[in-house]
Computed example of a mutant assay.
Amino acid sequence: VLSDRYGAQILSTIGALITATALFSMSTLNLHSSMTSIMLRLGLFGVGNGIFQTPNNSSVMGSVSKNRLGIASAFLATMRNAGMVLGIAMGSAIFTNRQMFYESLKINSNSAFLFGLRDAYIVAGILSIICALTSLVRDKINKKNNLEKDGV
């Protein structure tokens, strides 16, 4: 309903920015962070993902003809799953690498764990900002491609 009113482009961009804010906020967690603080950050992350996903999916599905909806749906699900798998793998690699780096500096294991986690959240936040920027320009690219198809 919101995407019909405001458009998928702006809602997806806002959702990605909220997600980035949550990820950067999670990078500030420390040994003394309360459960409430953690839950609020995770809740904000969920809200950002929800605001991004729905209009983005709607935009993708709305951009194909009816006879290709099954293909588009399958492709969308495949890309979503591939993104989750690659995101977890990349986040884990960054976390593990950075934790080992901090431990090599003789930082205690709890702090090294948090520093590695912080670095992984920062990279994820940067990727969410890139997502927001690409979401912001996608309608401009689609309009340009449509004009070129129409010979304008």
Results as ranks from 00 to 15, higher is better:
25 S>K: 04
25 S>P: 07
25 S>T: 12
26 M>N: 02
27 S>H: 13
27 S>L: 10
27 S>K: 11
27 S>V: 08
27 S>N: 13
28 T>D: 07
28 T>S: 13
29 L>W: 06
30 N>T: 11
31 L>V: 14
31 L>C: 10
31 L>E: 10
31 L>M: 12
32 H>T: 09
33 S>T: 01
33 S>Q: 04
34 S>F: 04
35 M>V: 13
35 M>H: 11
36 T>W: 01
36 T>S: 01
37 S>T: 08
37 S>R: 05
37 S>Q: 02
38 I>R: 12
39 M>L: 15
39 M>C: 08
39 M>Y: 12
39 M>F: 13
39 M>Q: 05
40 L>K: 13
41 R>L: 03
42 L>S: 13
43 G>C: 08
43 G>W: 04
44 L>Y: 06
46 G>H: 13
46 G>N: 15
47 V>L: 07
47 V>I: 14
47 V>H: 01
49 N>I: 11
49 N>A: 08
50 G>A: 07
51 I>P: 01
51 I>R: 02
51 I>T: 12
52 F>V: 06
52 F>K: 03
52 F>N: 00
53 Q>R: 02
53 Q>T: 05
54 T>W: 00
55 P>F: 04
55 P>Y: 04
56 N>M: 13
57 N>E: 14
57 N>H: 10
57 N>Y: 13
58 S>V: 01
58 S>T: 15
59 S>E: 12
60 V>P: 10
61 M>R: 07
61 M>Y: 06
61 M>T: 07
61 M>E: 08
62 G>M: 00
62 G>W: 00
65 S>P: 03
65 S>Q: 15
65 S>W: 08
65 S>K: 15
65 S>H: 15
65 S>C: 12
66 K>H: 15
67 N>P: 04
67 N>E: 11
68 R>C: 06
69 L>W: 09
70 G>P: 03
71 I>N: 14
71 I>R: 13
71 I>Y: 14
72 A>L: 02
72 A>N: 04
73 S>G: 15
73 S>P: 03
73 S>W: 05
73 S>Q: 03
74 A>T: 09
74 A>D: 04
74 A>I: 10
75 F>M: 06
75 F>A: 03
75 F>L: 10
75 F>K: 00
76 L>R: 00
76 L>A: 04
78 T>S: 14
78 T>I: 09
79 M>Q: 14
80 R>K: 10
80 R>N: 10
81 N>H: 12
81 N>W: 08
81 N>C: 07
81 N>L: 14
82 A>M: 15
82 A>N: 10
83 G>F: 02
83 G>V: 06
83 G>S: 05
83 G>A: 02
84 M>K: 07
84 M>E: 11
85 V>E: 02
86 L>P: 02
86 L>H: 01
87 G>K: 05
88 I>H: 04
88 I>G: 14
89 A>P: 15
89 A>K: 09
90 M>A: 13
90 M>C: 09
90 M>H: 07
90 M>L: 15
91 G>H: 08
92 S>P: 00
92 S>I: 08
93 A>Q: 15
93 A>C: 10
93 A>H: 03
93 A>I: 05
95 F>W: 08
95 F>L: 08
95 F>S: 02
96 T>M: 08
96 T>P: 04
96 T>D: 10
97 N>A: 11
97 N>M: 11
97 N>L: 14
97 N>D: 07
97 N>P: 08
98 R>Y: 14
98 R>D: 13
99 Q>F: 00
99 Q>P: 00
99 Q>H: 00
99 Q>V: 03
100 M>C: 06
